[in-house]
């Protein structure tokens, strides 16, 4: 464990908690893409199946349980409890165009053709594009609530910090996982235009609104 990975995990945890609290406190999931949240629930489920089979550390296990629990709680709030506030019309990204190619790629390019390894690879590839329905929804509505932009900033920052963690591990532990690195770089690149808007607008107290 290094400081970059720890702050990355805490940034990821902050994002998940911010979103859950935003929906719970405002009793509304307006502006939130339910499809992205379903994809994140799939990402955690397929990646953390080893929860049952291997124990790495209390930190590792507890974070996985929290991530999975919050992900399903968020999906539940969006599609069940506060479904009346779910903006289905703007959450129209065709996720099958993500899941099918990612599934095919995971079968073709992986470290080991075993069930758990292919699921893990699928989870890594899926995570890199899971935010697209959310970013697509914001481009369609042309704006995002400020709390949602903080959620997205923390979420984007987490994988950016993981990239620094991989550089650190490469030099100090001679460890690197090309699949995770390439997917992580793609994932972080997808946030770049949002990061630009976040820094130039939200941090200056303005509302995030895209030129419609």
């Amino acid at each position: 464990m290094n400081i970059f990975r720890l702050t990355g995990d805490l940034s990821h945890l902050a994002a998940i908690i911010i979103l859950l609290l935003k929906i719970w406190k405002t009793r509304s999931c307006a502006g939130i893409s339910g499809k992205s949240q379903i994809l994140f629930a799939i990402v955690f489920t397929t990646r953390y199946l080893d929860l049952l089979s291997s124990f790495i550390s209390l930190y590792n296990t507890s974070m996985k349980v929290i991530y999975i629990g919050c992900a399903y709680a968020t999906v539940y709030l969006i599609y069940m409890k506060f479904r009346a506030t779910y903006d289905g019309n703007h959450d129209s990204f065709r996720v099958e165009f993500l899941v099918v190619p990612v599934g095919g790629l995971a079968v073709l390019i992986n470290h080991d053709f075993s069930f758990l390894e292919i699921l893990w690879t699928f989870s890594i590839y899926l995570e890199s594009v899971a935010i697209l329905p959310q970013l697509f929804m914001i481009s369609k509505t042309g704006e995002a609530e400020t709390i949602t932009t903080h959620y997205l900033f923390c979420l984007g920052l987490y994988r950016a910090l993981y990239i620094v963690n991989w550089i650190w591990r490469y030099y100090f532990e001679a460890f690197f996982d090309l699949i995770a690195i390439v997917a992580g770089v793609v994932q972080t690149i997808l946030y770049c235009d949002f990061f630009y808007l976040y820094v130039t607008k939200v941090l200056k107290g303005k509302k995030l609104s895209l030129p419609a």
């Binding site: 291997s54 590792n60 974070m63 991530y67 470290h111 080991d112 075993s114 390894e117 993981y162 995770a180």
Partner: peptide, 10 residues
């Protein structure tokens, strides 16, 4: 193969 290395990242 790679999968022998413990996957310790979240």
């Amino acid at each position: 193969a790679f999968s022998e290395i413990e996957k310790d990242e979240l």
